[in-house]
Amino acid sequence: MQQNAETNTDFEVRSLDTICVNESHLTHKWYHNLKYLLVGIAFGIVFVKAEIISWFRIQEMFRLQSFHMYGVIGSAVVVGILSVWLIRKFKVKTIYGETIEFHKKPFNKGQIYGGLLFGMGWAITGACPGPLFAQIGTGALVISVTLLSAIAGTWVYGYTREKLPH
């Protein structure tokens, strides 16, 4: 029973995270991770060239002054939905022959409270976490302070997690 309770807590902790529950069960040498570096590079170039990391673009989005960001997010979601549907329909496997797994995101109140807080931070900084890294890459080195503060925010969440409503 004790064992069970511990396992469940662990699952809950892990399932609250967007990526921790989904992992390859195979082990690879470290350099297999370089493929994620390449995907990241492509992604970073798109971020800059489509001005998704622009503070100005984010202000326009939240003031309904431009369609650009709605078009980006909307078309990304449509392509994402189609891709996931195709992967499920044709039971597409990974390049290592593993079955692709999807995990449910259980609802908790954090998605409301945390969502509102993040939205406010997004509007002030003009950046969600990915763009913070990209803004530094464009030479705005002072944004490393913003990133450090975001990491501190993550740490404080972990520290106060038990006391927060979920």
């Binding site: 995270d17 979601v77 996931v84 939205g119 997004w122 913070l132 913003t146 925010g153 969440y157």
Partner: peptide, 30 residues
């Protein structure tokens, strides 16, 4: 703008269990 804004981004995304990529793109795609 920089310190408090960044803190909200880090605290809020983890509290919400994801950001624009994890929820708005990946979560909505599934």
């Amino acid at each position: 703008m920089m310190v408090a804004g960044g803190f909200l981004v880090g605290f809020g995304t983890r509290y919400a269990g994801g950001c624009t990529s994890g929820h708005s793109i990946m979560g909505l795609s599934t």
